[in-house]
Design a protein around this nucleic acid. Structure first.
Length: 128
DNA sequence: CTAGTGACCCAAC
DNA sequence: GGTTGGGCCACTA
């Protein structure tokens, strides 16, 4: 299924570095966002040397089911990426698909969701 | 077409 | 700083 660009990018992740689903999604400009990347990773074909373990959740959190999470930790630790308190130090290990050389994990513009109709968390019904 | 699920993310509580 | 809930969209039944 055309997840090739995702796999390709994942394969570009250098050893000892990690990136998040969101970063991959933004770099690839996937409409599905992080979700699509997650889906792609879930369907990652084995036997192609795709370092799926270098893809983690936002904030350096492992958001995958236990069986895989355990393996992921071991693989990452094997590459020199220890997980401290179920979390990875993005400051050091975060890798950006574009900047390759720099470890810029900081691209958080808080202005993404300006207003989301506060005090209203129940069924907006219509969007227009 | 609708409904349900998911290796996600973010804001509010 | 942990839990809840909504949103976003791809994929399957």
């Amino acid at each position: 299924m055309s997840w090739d660009p995702v796999y390709r990018l994942v394969k570009q992740i250098p050893r000892g570095r990690v990136t998040t689903y969101g970063e991959l999604a933004k770099s690839l400009r996937l409409r599905g966002g992080a979700r699509a990347v997650g889906y792609a990773m879930a369907a990652t074909p084995r036997g192609r040397g795709i370092p799926w373990h270098r893809v983690i959740g936002a904030g350096g959190k492992v958001t995958i089911p236990e069986p895989h999470a355990s393996l992921q930790r071991r693989l990452l630790a094997s590459e020199g990426v220890p997980i401290e308190g179920a979390r990875i130090d993005m400051k050091q290990f975060a890798w950006s698909p574009k900047s390759r050389a720099k470890s810029r994990a900081n691209s958080r513009a808080k202005s993404r969701k300006p207003k989301r109709t506060p005090t209203r968390r129940v069924a907006p019904k219509s969007r227009l």
